[in-house]
Design a protein around this nucleic acid. Structure first.
Length: 716
DNA sequence: CTGGGGACGGGGCCC
DNA sequence: AGGGCCCCGTCCCCA
């Protein structure tokens, strides 16, 4: 009777469904990072299968597994087992582990991983299979200390191997869950020889064949987030707060952190093949790059084949966490349609570099308008942006933050047959030859204006040989202006900032785009620069390549480490000229200076007095009054020097004037003050905002609480 | 409780 | 692309 009450195959069906959902990323709520591979799964399923994973998923959505203990390929097998109850047969397992088919030791790697992850069923299965092949006994650790398996035949690494570091990014303060105890792999297990390097060097081997497209073993796909500390200087990841690590014995007598240089990319080269093939089948040639004879690569639209596009594609197949996955799941159906929805008119989507087409040129006078860009500081997360009026995407377009994979393909859609567009003038041409001929005309014009070298650059931009955006069109006509314009001839049409080189200008112009071209594939947040995005990704993945030799603390950036090292060295190079306080970090000095700015009239005045010799400066008693403009200038100069402000455009001074004259109640006085003020602020090179702030402070100081001394501000 | 300092994370952006 | 710096914000500790 019981049989009739049990739906036959129910559990099987359930598993099938779950696995199906996993491969689609549907309802996946956890990402597991193994080396440079990402896997998505369901917390419930993991928790039901592995005590260890259970302890991890409780706290985090993003798990970082120690790839020394489990390789991406092996973890994939493990995940398959979790979701299917089946372990790929020997040949498959070997293939996945990038060893010769039939090489049974790969089972050892799986066994080691299963032990490490505390999946008893898989452990039993592996043992059973190994015994069947008569290998199990040979594989057992000779040391007898629990008989674990080192996954890749790597010699045991003592403590670390015995206490595998599965750590979740953003670990809770309580730290990561306790390491597994049962069957903890340890000790030298040379017989088990699946090495990651082999995996990734294997190319079009069986491993590649085994990887279904949606389950690539290295989904980070060329987006190298794994900068590593110099050899030996990087202790294993630790939970935040755990700083007091003993120096690593294997640390070389390093030259010290000061000698740190951002190390070269340390990941083993990604497997050339599984992905290459994918790519080869992907994008059609980009008319603006391919045929043109190879110019500089230029800003890559999201999803370009090299680099993040692989990740995007991977994400496409296995969408992101939670609702993102859901959204993507819906989106997945007809991406090209959405591309068309979105991409119709590049002019309507200035932020849309993806097509590789140029937006209409932005000459001075054809500004997009101040609102066009969204100040960089006005950044909103993707979720906030969704549906905003700024978003050029029509309803039903792409989920913000998730680029349409097809955008990578450079499909020009709105130019009809005239796919070859001249950036400066926006004209389209049906062939690159015609475009080149057209560009020749530009070159001649530009040569007449700027000279040959710059003209060539303009032409390159026009022909799309260089980065497709900005091109020469943004350049202010080398106009014979002041020295500033000579030094920084490339001016942004949207905000009048100027730059020394066109690349920087193009980079800057992205800050005005409505759509940020580089989305984080994990959280969807978008960035104007790829570097910022990859840096952001490192924070997601908990990758902190820069380790402090003194305390072991790790950082995502070299600069942070340099900053941090001052704590150990006691160096405090930033000194407050007002109170003499010293700071190890410049930003803390800045904060400190703000404190002076708020209540700092007496302090600043005292400092000025300390400098001595300034006219009208009060004595230490603070009773004196500053003369304007000297007093203001002195304070401004002082503060500016302290803030180490960079020299900027003289144009800033002009803008500054507009912002500062409100200090001067009397228009006549204001007028009289303009010239020295302009001269001084130009000399300081203050940015408008900063100068206004500084001068505001100074004016307040000079005016005194009642503002009466304002009358004395007129230059004598 | 509050203000200030120390330390650090993240993002923007110029070089 | 990567380095470097700036800015903002936060957390923690301490007086």
């Amino acid at each position: 009777m019981l049989d009739t009450m049990e739906a036959p195959g129910h559990s099987r069906q359930l598993l099938l469904q779950l696995n199906n959902q996993r491969t689609k990323g549907f309802l996946c709520d956890v990402i597991i990072v193994v080396q440079n591979a990402l896997f998505r799964a369901h917390k419930n399923v993991l928790a039901a299968s592995s005590a260890y994973l259970k302890s991890l998923v409780v706290h985090d959505n993003l798990l970082n597994l120690d790839h020394d203990m489990v390789s991406p390929a092996v973890f994939r097998l493990v995940l398959d087992f979790i979701y299917t109850g089946r372990l790929a047969d020997g040949a498959e397992a070997a293939a996945a582990a990038a060893v010769a088919p039939g090489a049974e030791p790969s089972l050892g790697a799986v066994l080691a991983a299963a032990s490490y992850l505390q999946i008893p069923d898989l452990v039993a299965l592996c043992k059973k299979r190994l015994k069947r092949h008569g290998k199990y006994c040979h594989l057992r650790g000779g040391g007898g200390g629990g008989g674990g398996y080192a996954p890749y035949g790597r010699p045991g690494r003592g403590l670390r191997a015995a206490t595998p570091v599965i750590q979740a990014c953003y670990s809770s303060p309580a730290g990561p869950p306790p390491p597994p105890t049962a069957e903890a792999p340890s000790g030298p297990e040379a017989a088990v020889n699946t090495h990651c390097a082999e995996l990734y060097a294997s190319g079009p081997g069986p491993a590649a064949a085994l990887c279904a497209p949606e389950r690539r073993c290295s989904p980070l796909c060329g987006l190298d987030l794994s900068k590593k500390s110099p050899p030996g200087s990087a202790p294993p990841e630790r939970p935040p707060g755990e700083r007091e690590l003993p120096p690593r014995p294997d640390s070389p007598p390093s030259a010290g952190p000061a000698a740190y240089k951002e190390p070269p990319l340390a990941l083993p080269p990604l497997p050339p093949l599984p992905f290459q093939k994918l790519e080869e089948a992907g994008p059609p040639p980009d008319p603006f790059r391919g045929g043109g004879g190879g110019g500089s690569p230029g800003p890559e639209p999201p999803g370009r084949p090299d680099g993040p596009s692989l990740l995007y594609r991977w994400m496409k197949h296995e969408p992101g966490l939670g609702s993102y996955g859901d959204e993507l799941g819906r989106e997945r159906g007809s991406p090209s349609e959405r591309c068309e929805e979105r991409g119709g008119d590049p002019a309507a989507s200035p932020g849309g570099p993806p097509l590789g087409l140029a937006p209409p040129p932005r000459y001075p006078g054809s500004l997009d308008g101040p609102g066009a860009g969204g100040d960089g500081d006005d950044y909103k997360s993707s979720s906030e942006e969704t549906g905003s009026s700024e978003d050029p995407s029509p309803p039903g377009g792409h989920l913000e933050g998730y680029p349409c994979p097809h955008l990578a393909y450079g499909e020009p859609e709105s130019f009809g047959d005239n796919l070859y567009v001249c950036i400066p003038c926006g004209k389209g041409f049906p062939s690159s030859e015609q475009l080149n001929a057209h560009v020749e005309a530009h070159v001649e014009e530009e040569e007449a204006l700027y000279g040959r070298a710059e003209a060539a650059e303009v032409a390159a931009g026009a022909a799309g040989l260089g980065p497709p955006f900005g091109g020469g069109g943004d350049k202010v006509a080398g106009a014979p202006g002041g020295l500033g314009e000579l030094l920084r001839p490339y001016r942004c049409a949207s905000c009048d900032k100027s730059y020394k080189d066109p690349a920087t200008l193009r980079q800057h112009e992205k800050t005005h785009w409505l759509t940020r071209p580089y989305p984080c594939t994990i959280c969807g947040k978008k960035f104007t620069q790829r570097g910022t995005m990859t840096r952001h990704m490192r924070s997601h993945l908990g990758l902190k390549p820069f380790a402090c030799d003194a305390c072991g603390m790790r950082f995502t950036r070299q600069y942070r480490l340099t900053e941090h090292m001052r704590i150990h060295s006691g160096e405090k190079p930033y000194e407050c000229q007002v109170c003499g306080g010293k700071f190890a970090q410049q930003r803390n000095l800045i904060s400190h200076m703000k404190m002076h700015a708020v209540g700092g009239a007496a302090g600043a005045a005292g400092a000025l007095a300390g400098l001595g010799g300034l006219p009208g400066v009060p004595g230490p008693d603070g009773k004196g009054k500053l003369d304007f403009p000297e007093g203001v200038f002195a304070v401004a100069r002082l503060t500016a020097e302290q803030l180490s402000l960079k020299q900027q455009d003289k144009a800033a001074a002009a803008e500054l004037l507009a912002q500062t004259t409100h200090f001067l109640h009397d228009p006549k006085v204001a007028l009289e003050s303009l010239y020295p003020l302009a001269k001084f602020t130009a000399e300081l090179g203050l940015s408008p905002d900063k100068a206004a702030e500084v001068l505001s402070q100074g004016a307040h100081l000079a005016a005194g609480p009642d503002g009466r001394t304002i009358d004395r501000f007129s230059p004598t």
